[in-house]
Nucleic acid binder design. Structure first.
Lengths: 110, 110
DNA sequence: TGAAAATATGAATACTTGTTCATATATCAA
DNA sequence: TTGATATATGAACAAGTATTCATATTTTCA
């Protein structure tokens, strides 16, 4: 009857350090530049310059944020000549993105 | 073949201001104190002092963070005499919490 | 009304972090 | 090797924010 897996799987004994990691993880989604980069990557991999052009951002801004996302294993790099292509490392990233998106769109609809 | 629903439901035309709101939304989960408060509330409503005691935090810290969560409609207050009880406003909050938690636990398992 | 309990708030501080600018590194082509 | 292209990085600055401390509200009870 209950289709919400998050309730069935609710954990009651989460260590503080795991909660800390969880908050650190959500921080990566808590920046406009990064969320726009993640959004772009939902459609596939992109080079640094492609991202910068599509988002109308300076190259260094994109590069700085990509380093953060790469260090956190949210995106993975692939070199092709002089270009670096980045793509989402984990399929869960899109799930979290869309879960949040569904939430705010749902609230806006009211 | 593709079992990832987030790809099937991918939205390609998200306005920048919606992406901004989305990042602002995720910021609420990007703080240790708030994520611990949210975690506590997954089990039900709590008074301010209960939260402060369980998390070993000063009352003003909890109150400040509750104001942020309340303003963002993540939690809702209920007065009972001198006490204020707070609970999660939206059932999606728990879903997002657990989606992120599942993700980092999955990565730790590797 | 006065005191106590519970919560909220304001200002100050310290800390974090995103952007900017300049520059460095890396790769390719001639 | 030299120049051009693509990306990365470091330092400095500015803006945002979580915590602390003190104090203000609000409510209950004697």
């Amino acid at each position: 009857m209950n289709t919400c897996s998050y309730i069935k799987n609710a954990r009651n004994d989460i260590p503080v350090d795991v909660l800390f990691e969880l908050s650190e993880f959500f921080k990566f989604f808590g920046d406009t530049t990064r969320i726009r980069i993640i959004h772009l990557m939902l459609s596939g991999e992109l080079s640094v310059n492609e991202i910068a052009e599509k988002l109308n951002l300076e190259q260094s801004v994109v590069s700085h944020q990509l380093r953060i996302l790469r260090t956190a294993n949210l995106v993975k790099p692939r070199r092709e000549g002089r270009k670096m292509f980045y793509s989402l490392d984990d399929e869960h990233i899109g799930l979290i993105f869309n879960t949040g998106l569904t939430h705010i769109l749902h609230k806006k609809g009211k």
